[in-house]
Design a protein around this nucleic acid. Sequence first.
DNA 1: TAAACTATCTTGTAAAACAAGGTATGGTTA
DNA 2: TAACCATACCTTGTTTTACAAGATAGTTTA
Lengths: 114, 114
Amino acid sequence: MQTTQMLKGIIDGCILSIIQEGEVYGYELASKLDAYGFESFSEGTIYPILIRLQKDNLIQSTLKKSTAGPKRKYYSLTERGEEELADFQKRWNHLSTTVNQILNKGGSVDEERK
Amino acid sequence: MQTTQMLKGIIDGCILSIIQEGEVYGYELASKLDAYGFESFSEGTIYPILIRLQKDNLIQSTLKKSTAGPKRKYYSLTERGEEELADFQKRWNHLSTTVNQILNKGGSVDEERK
DNA sequence: TAAACTATCTTGTAAAACAAGGTATGGTTA
DNA sequence: TAACCATACCTTGTTTTACAAGATAGTTTA
């Protein structure tokens, strides 16, 4: 059970979501994340995450020949990965709602008298 | 300069935002965060953050008597804190937009040909 | 054969997110 | 007055994350 998860694994969730759309390999993923606005994720960030996700059995990989360069390791979601992605989406909704509330309303929770 | 910040310090930003609305002390902050939906932040998370924020000169504190119990350390934003909060809001907007795009559209960035 | 590009992985560091537990103050009640 | 409880703050230590830097290797083209 993951209680205190909220903040963790935001990129993880994004990566799962991108993989769900269709097989991708790491190098490609890096440029997709970049195109989406995550300028700051280098391969030093991405590959360790992919390895971790696979270790946790959320994604699986197959090697395929590249048109240019070494073989590509294509990733796809496992069943557990699908579940985790669904779970992440809930967590993200909760998180973004919460943060937006705080940022917009500032600090007044007082009207919330039970 | 903080380039690769995106993910870090989301609670930091929320705390700054709550403090901006009016002086709070740590114990109170914990319950406010909880009321907002951050169930998982214990004092073991919050106090170290407050100490860090003060060390970074983003917030300042004054001690005041409590109605019951030891003195309360009330925090307020410094000028740098105001700036950092504004900065965080931009980062948050960028982050949440990016994540929402990925989650909603999945992985198709291709139509984005410049 | 060397450069340039594609592609993956490893190492090491710093900081973040916490759980757990410790300290201190003041009020209530047995 | 001792015990207890609630308030309030802080510290220690662990695990995980984000990441920079760089190593390794295949493929094309000059």
